[in-house]
Design a protein around this nucleic acid. Structure first.
Lengths: 239, 239
DNA sequence: CCATCATATAGTCAAATTGACTCAAACACA
DNA sequence: TGTGTTTGAGTCAATTTGACTATATGATGG
């Protein structure tokens, strides 16, 4: 019965036995697809400039400094990569397969983040940072293809769409814009009338008395996300 | 633009900057409460024999060996603590707050596991291992109270009850036993008839032609869990 | 061996939810 | 001023859900 592992000496004192900790972030934004014009999910990747996997694209990330919180490290990599601040940031999963990085045992705590579409438009893009359509990725470094796949699944099955869709939008938005986000994430068309009904009954929207005119149809009312709704959120691990 | 963190030299070569990796497991079993007689959730804890937090109870766990997979390490601690094999094992969350362990930066990858009730009865219990009712825990070492709270929430909100409830039971079981598990997890009574209807329409149960007699009422049919059901499972991170 | 007890199992019914659909409202544009 | 387009309200049937009633069946005790 070895019930006192945690009471053994630090493995640092014993030498050996340790893996190396990294933090990576899957950053999603909605932007129009070049062909269809419909909004789809995009994410930024960075080009590796060293081995292993030199020249392959990879998720933004880095080693975890001992004096930085996990979420802070994820947010920092996000800012460093895209000049953006996340509107939503949540831990996704920790990947630690022994052979996921050649030579060195690396355990990666992966976060996923959502950023606003318009802001993502003017996001910095350089030689070593490029945005890709989430469902048309090239082969990535390490196990990053698998990670993105899982992040996509989580995004699409996450129940609390309210907060998530809101993260892609500005402070106020029309129901059509909100529906567009849902349609892009769920990859299917939604009935406008039924969507309106379900949103209205969700209690997460506050209707303003502003409208957007200028379009060739009846002006749409602007809504605001009800922040009190997140007070009823599930008891996350972070509180 | 620091887009090549992952291409920097290994932090081990640079020295410093690293946190220490541990793996812990929240192990749930169902057993009758001494007072009410109803089945409730219990979990085993180990007593710490060293500082920090000497003599406090803590989750089973240990440092991560560089040559062991994360889930394997979780399963191993489970066996070492309880002599049991998990019927269900899944990563819960990674806790890494800077100050969660005094002195040393420890990042813990936490798993949660389910074990069979009957088996848990004869599980090893020693001076330094004891089972506690999940909702009546003493103050635990580190942030382990928070971790258990989150594990309980995950258990109760996990949609795929089928697999979860099955992990608490034997290979065959009556609908009453299955309902008992759901009631214990959800902490509320369920209508037997409605429960039967929803289970039958779920397509995850195979009815055998065996019955359990001996009780003072109509014998109950035995059912079996349909393993094919798990093929339609969500695309977890591990495949 | 029969009445009774307790749970298994089947069935009913109304309320709530969901998907498909219709239709008037309101503004831009030609 | 008419046409086109989307907003926003409403209808209707199918499905699901919760509460409930009724029957089946073996154990038990007199």
């Amino acid at each position: 019965m070895l019930e006192h592992h945690l009471t053994e000496q630090s493995p640092l004192e014993r030498g050996s036995v340790q893996a190396t900790l990294a933090v990576s972030t899957v950053i999603f934004a909605l932007r129009p697809d070049d062909e269809s014009g419909l909004k789809t999910l995009w994410l930024p990747l960075v080009r590796r400039t060293r081995d292993p996997h030199r020249d392959l694209w990879a998720l933004p990330g880095g080693w975890l400094p001992a004096d930085e919180e996990l979420a802070a490290a994820a947010g920092r990599t996000l800012r460093e990569t895209t000049d953006l601040s996340p509107r939503y940031l949540e831990q996704l999963y920790t990947f630690g397969d022994i052979d996921r990085s050649p030579g060195l045992r690396v355990v990666s705590v992966v976060y996923w983040a959502l950023v606003r579409s318009e802001v993502a438009e003017r996001a910095s893009v350089g030689e070593n940072v490029r945005w890709f359509a989430a469902d048309q990725l090239p082969p990535l470094a390490f196990d990053h293809n698998r990670i993105v796949e899982y992040a996509l699944w989580r995004l699409r099955t996450k129940v609390e769409y309210a907060r998530i869709a809101h993260a892609f939008l500005g402070d106020t938005f029309t129901l059509a814009q909100l529906r567009e986000v849902h349609e892009a994430v769920l990859q299917k068309a939604l009935d406008p009338a039924n969507f309106r009904r379900s949103m209205e009954s969700s209690g997460t929207l506050i209707s303003t008395d502003q409208h957007v005119a200028g379009a060739r149809h009846r002006p749409a009312r602007l809504y605001r996300y009800d922040d009190r709704a997140s007070e009823h959120d599930p008891p996350g691990p972070t509180r």
